[in-house]
Design a binder for these strands. Structure first.
Lengths: 300, 300
DNA sequence: GGTATTCATCGAATTTTTCGATGGCAGGTA
DNA sequence: TACCTGCCATCGAAAAATTCGATGAATACC
């Protein structure tokens, strides 16, 4: 049977609770019954605590086990600790209605225009106390996640490394945006006529290359842009009443389509828009809620 | 090998410390080395914590184990708890110089006169911040100890019931106190001359009977007191220049012996003056100090 | 004085934890 | 690409800790 382990770090919460019950009942036997264990198990654990704290903790005085002063001190802290354990065990609850946290979303122009407005509105409706921050994902959105600068990343980012999870929101492709009066506005664009257009090229910089360009270059072609812009902002104004053509994600084109026309692109550069998050936020209730919300608002 | 125990109360402080070390080092293997245990033991304990908290706690992100938000919360409380454990383990230290506690001593007239002055002076010298309270022990000093009304009991109380400890301070006996001019002041008192004296009887009440009286009555005698007093206070004034004789503990007589004479009593009713304390104070540093102090000042 | 409780202790049984070895996975390197 | 290498999960066996039921000693209660 051997002596109980006198190493204090081997004390567990069951032992602290046992101390509490023995103190409450003033009896080892009664405590054993209450805890549904054998009386000798109570003796064993008390012996262990006695060895750890170098104090008898309980002494018999007229039929009752009475606690020493030291025991009272230890018990006071034990009660605190048992309370803290209960708090720790509390499942990670998240109540949108009362939450006041901040969420940070990393994304780029496309998502800011097409997803963020609906997302912000949904967050404000479901969680009025929360604040939203949007930061540029650029090409290194994954780093933002790792550095905890962002809670989620939305965009055309395939899940690559480990340490991340992702969920595909929807498929997207590139299409050609041009003035409704453009000569080729109502024809089907073949490769040659496409390549010969007066292109507006969106170059986000930072080494990012749009999928349709990769597809086009992989097929051995090249386009000579007439205008290069750093983002699609103001693109509609640029194209309207001109002979310029921009190749942009289809939904972005549709968003601009008041006086413009959208045509299929021979190099559609299909890609997935995904929601990406760091593994360390995977189990968090708030993050699960946020991801579900993003999924919902991204449904067509 | 079986699954780890998912009962939260089986979590011990070693597990919380392991959590701390893993968090600090970002690696199970490194934590195992630091803690001088096998890596699989670390995995085992982390698996247990994961099961208890229903959270992965650590996820691999780019070669490093990164903590989840939940893990951070749990860790924060764990650190607090580890701190509290350290406090609890602190041996029950007592520093007289800085102590500000109160000590309560239960005793009766005899000890208040013969021991308390020296004790109070010793306490004031060694522990200037402490306060002393003296309460009457009467006949039920043991109850005062059990009720925590007194820290120690000093007096002619044999250790009787369990739940108490005691230490014999010294032996005492009764002697006869009379005026130095009393006719029998210089003769040896035999039983008959003793019984025929004009006795002053101290009757403390409460059923307490002095040892010499028990001895005398056990021998089939009886005395007819001339004066009955409830305590020896003022006894000297009463006896001086009178033919009265009081039978009192010898040291009490000596304390009064300015103009009085002490004679051996044929019924010395020897008894021990003891220090008695409740078992629940046995291990307390303050109480040990107090008891040692009382022992010292009671040396002749 | 006898009887019933209560806690400590014993040996055996059980459970938990640790160990050493192995396998899968991801990262870094040739 | 393909191979190492380091890291964690898992396995079976071994060790350690805990629990059990029984018994003994001390004490409270008749």
């Amino acid at each position: 049977m051997a002596q109980p382990n006198a190493d204090p770090s081997s004390i567990d919460f069951a032992a602290l609770n046992l101390l509490r019950v023995v103190h409450e009942l003033g009896s080892f036997t009664a405590a054993a019954e209450k805890l549904n264990i054998n009386q000798s198990a109570v003796s064993y654990t008390i012996a262990k605590l006695r060895a750890c704290f170098h104090d008898p903790l309980f002494v018999r005085e007229g039929g009752r086990q009475v606690s020493t002063d030291r025991c009272e001190e230890i018990l006071a802290r034990s009660l605190q600790m048992l309370g803290m354990l209960d708090e720790m065990l509390q499942p990670d609850a998240f109540d949108p209605g009362s939450a006041t946290q901040n969420v940070t979303i990393a994304c780029n122009y496309y998502e800011r225009v097409l997803l963020i407005p609906a997302l912000v509105s949904a967050i404000r409706r479901e969680a009025p106390g929360m604040t939203v921050k949007v930061i540029n994902a650029l090409g290194d959105g994954h780093l933002r996640l790792l550095n905890r600068e962002a809670d989620v990343l939305v965009g055309p980012f395939a899940r690559s490394e480990s340490g991340f999870h992702s969920r595909r929101l929807y498929a997207e492709e590139y299409a050609c945006l041009m003035d409704a009066a453009h000569p080729l506005a109502d024809t089907a664009l073949d490769i040659d006529s496409y390549l010969g257009l007066n292109h507006v090229l969106i170059d986000y910089g930072g080494g990012w290359q749009s999928a349709y360009l990769r597809e086009l270059e992989a097929a051995g072609h090249r386009i000579a842009p007439v205008v290069i812009a750093p983002s699609p902002a103001g693109l509609a104004t640029l194209i309207v009443e001109s002979d310029l053509v921009a190749t942009v994600p289809r939904r972005l084109g549709e968003w601009n389509s008041d006086r413009l026309k959208i045509a299929d692109c021979p190099f559609p550069g299909r890609f997935d828009v995904s929601l990406v998050w760091a593994a360390h936020t995977n189990a968090s209730a708030m993050h699960r809620w946020l991801r579900e919300l993003i999924w919902r608002i991204s449904r067509p």
